[in-house]
Simulated assay, not measured.
Amino acid sequence: MSERSAGPARLLPWTSPSGSPCYLVGDGTGFVSRLADDIERVQLGMADDVLDYAEGMLADRTTSAREVRFLARGLADALRDVRRIADSREKRSTPG
């Protein structure tokens, strides 16, 4: 029987109900790892969509302040997700 080696703890793309970060320890092949990969793909796609929407909205001089605040919230949420993904990937690729 072969023993799976656990890599560094993976920062997951979601938080606990209290807002604390969630981590997974494993070899990266299990169900939760695959689910995290899928969620990261969705989050990155949504960030692209929000960025595309922002570029169009900001080019429109008739955009209201309320619309810009709503856009800023979406951009902040997307940036938080992308930063979490980058942090997770960096920690898994850094030796030691």
Rank of each mutant, 00 (worst) to 15 (best):
M1H: 10
M1I: 06
M1V: 12
R4W: 10
S5V: 15
A9F: 04
R10M: 12
R10W: 14
R10C: 08
P13L: 05
W14H: 04
T15K: 12
S18H: 09
S20I: 03
L24T: 01
V25G: 03
G26L: 00
G26I: 03
D27Q: 02
G28M: 03
G28Q: 00
G28C: 00
G28W: 00
T29S: 10
T29K: 05
T29A: 09
G30P: 01
F31A: 12
L35W: 11
L35T: 13
A36F: 02
D38P: 05
V42C: 12
V42W: 08
V42H: 12
L44G: 04
G45P: 04
G45Y: 07
G45W: 06
M46C: 13
A47W: 02
V50A: 13
L51F: 11
D52N: 15
D52H: 15
Y53K: 09
Y53T: 15
E55R: 13
E55G: 13
G56C: 07
G56F: 13
G56I: 07
G56V: 09
M57D: 00
R61F: 15
T62P: 04
S64K: 06
S64P: 04
A65F: 04
A65T: 13
E67M: 12
V68K: 03
V68W: 00
F70S: 11
L71E: 00
A72S: 06
G74M: 07
L75A: 03
L75V: 14
A76L: 06
A76F: 10
D77K: 08
A78T: 03
A78S: 13
R80V: 03
V82I: 07
V82L: 06
R83M: 09
R83S: 13
R84T: 14
R84A: 15
I85T: 05
A86S: 04
A86I: 14
D87H: 07
D87A: 11
S88L: 01
S88K: 05
E90D: 06
E90Q: 10
K91R: 15
S93T: 11
T94W: 02
T94L: 12
T94C: 04
P95Q: 04
P95A: 03
G96V: 07
G96M: 03
G96Y: 09
G96C: 13
